[in-house]
């Protein structure tokens, strides 16, 4: 997605990345909501990674993620989808995860 400063050669094994900012309430809520949803939908084989932008701000530029929390899914062809927010809306989260 990011054009200018994206590190396109950067390889990530994870297909599901949750961007958070430290211990911010929304980040914690998103983490909790995601874990619950993955369990509820019996998705446990998807490689999941968490990036804290406060510690690795350059990753924000690499992925083009400036609002947190944000959940990114990278499919086999490298296509990225992002769901922003604390993932409190169950329906949209379920919808997002259905592609896995």
């Amino acid at each position: 997605m990011n054009r200018a400063l994206a590190d396109d050669n950067h390889q990530h094994n994870a297909t599901l990345i949750l961007f958070v900012t430290g211990e911010a309430p929304r980040s914690r809520r998103a983490h909790h909501n995601l874990t619950a949803a993955l369990e509820a939908n019996s998705i446990d084989d998807a490689p999941t990674r968490e990036i804290d932008l406060l510690r690795e701000p350059q990753e924000a530029i690499s992925f083009g993620i400036f609002a947190t929390p944000a959940l990114m899914h990278i499919d086999a062809s490298g296509k990225r989808r992002v769901l922003y927010g604390d993932l409190s809306d169950e329906y949209s989260l379920k919808n997002f995860l259905s592609a896995l």
Partner: peptide
């Protein structure tokens, strides 16, 4: 990059400030 993205709940900009 937020163009065309989906949203679920509120978000914050702490990451933006860090960048």
């Amino acid at each position: 990059s937020m163009k065309g993205a989906e949203f679920s709940g509120t978000f914050d900009i702490d990451g933006l400030l860090a960048v």
